[in-house]
Design a protein around this nucleic acid. Structure first.
Length: 506
RNA sequence: GGGUCGUUAGCUCAGUCGGUAGAGCAGUUCGCUUUUAACGAAUUGGUCGAUGGUUCGAAUCCAUCACGACCCA
């Protein structure tokens, strides 16, 4: 369904008020005097640079140094006292105070400062000094208004707390809430750490299609789109998996990709329709190798970005220094459900009523593997707080994973849980082309039967497997959920700069 | 999809039993040459999320809808 953009949408009416009208009047006066948006001011220091360089200096020593600085930033606080005034400027590094004095600045510039509003962006040059109370400041001898802020900032003490505005107008959140900014800075550090970790192990980063003719690599509902020139339906990818394994066929034997996946599903504190996934593949390795790698990577990542493997998340203490748990799905379900007979976990007729009793909705087509997985999700998943690998996923729910040599009903697969949430999914790859073709066929049958999350048949992927995929292990890690854990964020929206939202209420 | 809670000035929030819409900050005006959420004085600003209903009278009670938060599926 297409929704054409109308002129009314293109130029929406913006909210106005008395405060904005007053600031617009000031802007018009600035326009009348010349260029209201100059771009010639050059700064030579950030607020944090000055604090780092001079923060410890004695007042008299600083006076003797006579250092000067050119700083620029947003006016966040302002105190006018007749012929002398203070303002607080904020830049990317933090805040620094400026001192404006009629005698030093001259009447025109001093009046300009007095007429400035909170939120305006100023350029200030002057001597670096300390005030009577010892606060490092810049004594302005020149002052330039670089940008007139037309919209008032949130209240200076209480700040911006409305969670909806924080998500919809993230720029205001970032101006007002240093904690919010810190989360996204840490997110960048986490992603940088992961890239470096994998690069160091000899993995190569690649980019594979986001627009795919056949969406594969996961069971999820895809977004559809249309390529006009080819007159062809395309899908936004739900996973890069099948392309990355094609690359392993082509002897990129250690590859990874960190980028966006798209799934046409609901929104929640754990789900956003577009989210960031790390996927990596290593030839001549199995799922146990990847569990070891995952354990090392997450522990080292916490050490690198938090400085400690001990952390608090949503009020609970975690110690990533301890070995991560490793249980099979059947073990975990048996432990959580002592009333069940674990010897009958391969009996669909035995499991079905129990799934229903635990609040599940078992379909007649579900086999024992799918039913056991339902029990796991209903009774175990949310309880896995400490880092835990769950292994031996049923073949029935693992269409891309290699069967276990001793028990073909389960696969050499794990999922990794942290804080009660699934964070990673990895397995030894199915590299038997005929088995893979048969499992695609089963997925197509499920799709025909009405399961719109079932997979498509990807004939080119089968062709690639027919050339020979080396024995390989692969894994996907949900970056957003990992970031939530390491930044103690309750909602995925707190770690996405621009989370998906419904249109604003009109 | 279901449930609970929320939506009042630009921001943060009060608003009693249904009886003329409130505060702080921001804004405007005045004073003030080392302030720290500066201070003192005066002052402007409201479709109480939207639409219906009950009532002599609704921010307040009821219904529906929108958006958001949380919980459940």
């Amino acid at each position: 369904m297409s929704e054409p953009i109308t002129p009314a949408d293109a130029v929406p009416v913006v909210d106005e008020n008395q405060v904005i009208a007053g600031r617009r009047a000031k802007l018009e006066a600035l326009r009348a005097q010349g260029n209201a948006y100059p771009n010639s001011f050059r700064r030579d220091a950030l607020a944090a640079d000055l604090h780092g360089q001079f923060g410890e200096a004695e007042t008299t020593a600083l006076e003797a140094l006579g250092s000067r600085a050119a700083i620029a930033g947003r006016l966040m606080l302002k105190r006018v006292m007749g012929k002398a005034s203070f303002g607080t400027l904020q830049d990317s590094s933090g805040r620094i105070q400026v001192f404006c004095q009629l005698n030093t600045l001259g009447e025109a510039s001093y009046e300009l400062f007095k007429s400035c509003d909170m939120g305006d962006i100023l350029g200030v040059k002057g001597k670096v000094f300390k005030t009577k109370t010892g606060e490092l400041s810049v004594w302005a001898d020149s002052l330039e208004l670089l940008v007139k802020g037309l919209r008032p900032l949130p209240e200076k003490h209480a700040g911006l707390t409305d969670i909806e505005v924080r998500y919809r107008q993230r720029y205001v959140d970032l101006i007002m809430n240093p904690d919010a900014k810190a989360v996204f800075e840490k997110r960048t550090k986490i992603v940088r750490f992961i890239r470096n970790f994998l690069d160091t192990l000899g993995y190569q980063e690649v980019e594979t299609p986001m627009l795919q003719p056949i969406p594969g690599g996961a069971t999820a509902r895809p977004f559809t789109t249309h390529h006009n020139a080819l007159d062809r339906q395309l899908y936004l990818r739900i996973a890069p998996e099948l392309y990355l394994k094609r690359l392993v066929v082509g002897h990129f034997e250690k590859v990874y990709e960190i980028n966006r996946n798209f799934r046409n599903e609901g929104l929640s504190t754990r789900h956003n329709p577009e989210f960031t996934m790390l996927e990596f593949y290593q030839a001549y390795a199995d799922y146990r190798d990847l569990m070891d790698l995952t354990e090392n990577m997450i522990r080292d990542c916490a050490l690198a970005v938090n400085g400690s493997a001990q952390l608090t998340n949503q009020g609970r203490e975690y110690d990533l220094e301890k070995p991560f748990h490793r249980w099979t799905m059947a073990e975990a379900v048996a432990k959580a459900n002592p009333d069940l007979d674990a010897s009958r976990f391969n009996d669909a007729d035995y499991l079905r009523p129990h799934v229903k009793a635990k609040g599940g909705n078992p379909q007649p087509s579900y086999g024992a593997g799918k039913l056991l997985t339902e029990l796991f999700e209903a009774t175990v998943e949310a309880t896995l707080m400490d880092p835990t690998f769950i292994t031996a996923y049923p073949t029935e729910v693992s269409p891309l994973a290699r069967r276990n040599d001793d028990n073909p009903d389960v696969t050499d697969r794990f999922e990794f849980f942290l804080g009660g949430r699934e964070v990673a999914n990895g397995f030894s790859e199915l590299n038997d082309a005929d088995d893979q073709a048969a499992r695609f066929k089963a997925q197509v049958d499920a799709k025909d039967a009405g399961d719109d999350e079932a997979m498509f048949f990807d004939a080119d992927y089968i062709r690639a497997l027919e050339y020979g995929l080396p024995p390989t292990a692969g894994e996907g890690i949900g970056i957003d959920r990992l970031v939530m854990f390491l930044t103690d964020s309750a909602s995925i929206r707190d770690v996405l700069l621009f989370p998906a939202m419904r249109p604003e209420a009109g």
